[in-house]
Design a protein around this nucleic acid. Sequence first.
RNA 1: CGGAGCGUGGCGCAGCCUGGUAGCGCACUUGUCUGGGGGACAAGGGGUCGUAGGUUCAAAUCCUAUCGCUCCGACCA
Length: 448
Amino acid sequence: MHLSRYFMPILREPPKEAEIVSHQLMLRAGMIRQSAAGIYSWLPLGYRVLRKIEQIVRQEQDRAGAIELLMPTIQSADMWRESGRYDDYGKEMLRITDRHKRDLLFGPTAEEVITSIFRDGIKSYKELPRNLYNIQWKFRDEIRPRFGVMRGREFLMKDAYSFDLSKEASRLSYARMFAAYLRTFARMGLKAIPMAADTGPIGGDLSHEFIVLAKTGESQVFCHSDLLEIEVPAANTNFQGDLTEVMEQWIGAYAATEEMHDAKRFEAEVPKDKRVEARGIEVGHIFHFGTKYSEAMGARVQGPDGNLINLEMGSYGVGISRLVGAIIEAGHDDSGIIWPVSVAPFEVGLINLRVGDGATDSVCADIYAKLTGAGIEVLYDDTDERAGAKFSTMDLIGLPYQVVVGPKGVKDRQVELKDRKSGEKQTMSFEGVISRVIEDVQRNRILV
RNA sequence: CGGAGCGUGGCGCAGCCUGGUAGCGCACUUGUCUGGGGGACAAGGGGUCGUAGGUUCAAAUCCUAUCGCUCCGACCA
């Protein structure tokens, strides 16, 4: 992509409404624009990141055996009356009336829809277990949206729903999603730690929040430092099998958010030098909630003995739009964002320091062609800005690698490669930078 | 919903108290010089001052209402 033809309205100063750093940087980098309180347009740069995160979530759900479908944003109130939640849900639910005066709502979650679909589509225990997921925009009319996309009213969420015949089988489904989440967040360069969670209004008896540690996190969290060292399940993990052991490895050590924190237990179970007290951001939440919806909505199958059995269900959410903010909170410096390759809007920024200089232009054109030809995503700054402005912009938007080409270096057939994260700069030949960048990008695309 | 604050050009702000031709910095356009970490000079373009009423010869400024946004609290992926 040539920057001179792209749409990336950057701001030098952060708009005053942005309080936290991820919100400021997303506005400054031209990733989002606010449309109403807690509702955002995703500009091209931000949308590219959102789609990459979505794609990682999708790949890991597929790997774990979940099946994607797409459910509507607008739901019928009738379904919610059936589950008994229509009146319980309160003002967070955006209620809408159509021209026939029928009650509709903008879905804050999809348990009702999925339960009804699944109930009508399946009759026998032979068709279990199944896990269905969808990636869709949700709306919760938060009293006070804040922190940009971290706590918007409209948000993109992956939610998966497992259906099993028994509680034991359902726990296997839970462990499978648990393991999938470990991989999902690790691939985005995040250390996400599962922590025991309150099951809240959804109900049930097994629930974990996945918390990303970040200095600017919204809540205080406590855990054993060993949890930071455990390897996530490898790509070739057999997700058909029993992953209980993987899960137990993670839930063995102490980890809790402030709501669930028990200071006495923390001190008793975790040696002083292993205690981590940090800030955290919730990026995923999984529940095993049993038969709450299947009973209310009549989702049953016939078992081997011919008797009807209520389905055991679990639900598994990932805040995809929120993750964009969380990744920035976890990765930035004074100059701007620092993207991991796996979710970066472009993988490489190519800076032409002297647009109009024949030799410099042609070296840039050559590098651009060779990198894009190798499947690398390059944002080529071919604008007629001054060097300083270009460096600042590139640092702000946080592409992992910067290739800097100027007339001085070109004379000696040299260009510069800068690593955004370390700030390290190396001078090398045209050919050298091309092979080096291709190699580094390909190696870092998939982190685990 | 309780408390606090803010709406003036794309972004950041001054002007309001004490009514009198709408300003500053950045960004933008054109030109010249420049050119490796947000450059200099010159000339320009862009704003029904959130909206609606009212007071007044005259309203960004005073009064009333209303809408929007932000922060603190209760709530939350």
